[in-house]
Amino acid sequence: MRGLRVLRTPAVLSAAVCALLSAGGTPAYAHTALRTASPGPGAEVGPDTRVVALTFGTLLKGTVPKVSVAGPDGEPVPVGEPVVVPGSTVCAAVTGLPDGVGTLTYTVLAADGDAQTHHYEFQVTKSAKAAPVPTACRGRELPGPPVQQASGLLERRGTAVAGASAATAVLAAAVGVLAVRRRRRGRGAAVGGDDLTG
């Protein structure tokens, strides 16, 4: 099982961001730097976590960061469409966090138009509590996570059933055509016999 390789506390992340912001000639991406997150880098949360939230310095107006989550095996975890709320906070519904080290990846558009992608890891443990939902995200209607795996399975089953039905229909039609041809041949032979003996 791979280890957790992240900044261990949000305080370290905040200190790093503050140092960057206080430096002279603040670059454009500093405004879109991640300030707080839930679950945050290195956090230990329960599998019943239902919301992931990211708060940035300032988001480019009209843009919505992309957010994705992967389990310890790299398999994607269903995440709903992110919603930007006042305060440059992005909220997204999530479900089915598997035990182990999870990875949250986000892509944000900086003020200069450059897309910046970053990621961090957190730990999912059954004995831990769900990640806290920030005040900005509480009581909001968030799009539910997609059910791609389930729908894909249903689609495959539906396709298989449809394919089987079509094959059965074709087979039945072929049998019907053969039966009609045999009947016609039988009738033709009978008529020919009468002519010969007539």
Score class of each variant (00 low, 15 high):
1 M>T: 09
2 R>K: 15
3 G>A: 11
7 L>C: 03
8 R>E: 06
10 P>N: 06
15 A>N: 09
16 A>M: 15
18 C>V: 14
21 L>T: 14
21 L>S: 06
24 G>E: 01
25 G>V: 07
30 A>E: 01
32 T>E: 05
32 T>Y: 01
33 A>W: 01
34 L>T: 12
38 S>K: 03
40 G>L: 01
41 P>W: 00
43 A>V: 02
46 G>L: 08
48 D>Y: 02
49 T>P: 00
50 R>P: 12
60 L>Q: 15
62 G>N: 08
63 T>M: 11
63 T>E: 03
65 P>E: 08
67 V>Y: 01
67 V>Q: 01
68 S>N: 05
68 S>F: 01
69 V>Y: 07
69 V>L: 15
74 G>Y: 11
79 V>W: 02
79 V>G: 01
83 V>Q: 03
84 V>R: 11
84 V>C: 12
87 G>P: 08
88 S>Y: 01
88 S>K: 01
90 V>K: 08
91 C>A: 06
92 A>K: 05
96 G>R: 14
104 L>Y: 02
112 D>A: 11
116 Q>C: 04
117 T>D: 05
118 H>K: 09
118 H>M: 09
119 H>A: 09
120 Y>E: 05
120 Y>Q: 04
122 F>Y: 08
126 K>L: 14
133 V>F: 12
133 V>E: 13
135 T>R: 12
140 R>W: 03
141 E>A: 06
143 P>R: 04
143 P>F: 02
145 P>A: 12
145 P>K: 07
151 S>H: 13
153 L>P: 13
154 L>C: 08
159 T>F: 04
160 A>D: 08
161 V>N: 03
162 A>G: 11
165 S>A: 14
165 S>R: 14
165 S>L: 13
166 A>G: 02
167 A>V: 12
167 A>C: 08
168 T>D: 00
171 L>F: 10
172 A>T: 07
172 A>N: 04
173 A>F: 08
173 A>W: 03
175 V>A: 08
176 G>I: 02
178 L>G: 13
179 A>H: 08
181 R>W: 10
183 R>M: 07
183 R>L: 14
186 G>V: 04
193 G>Q: 14
196 L>C: 01
197 T>D: 12
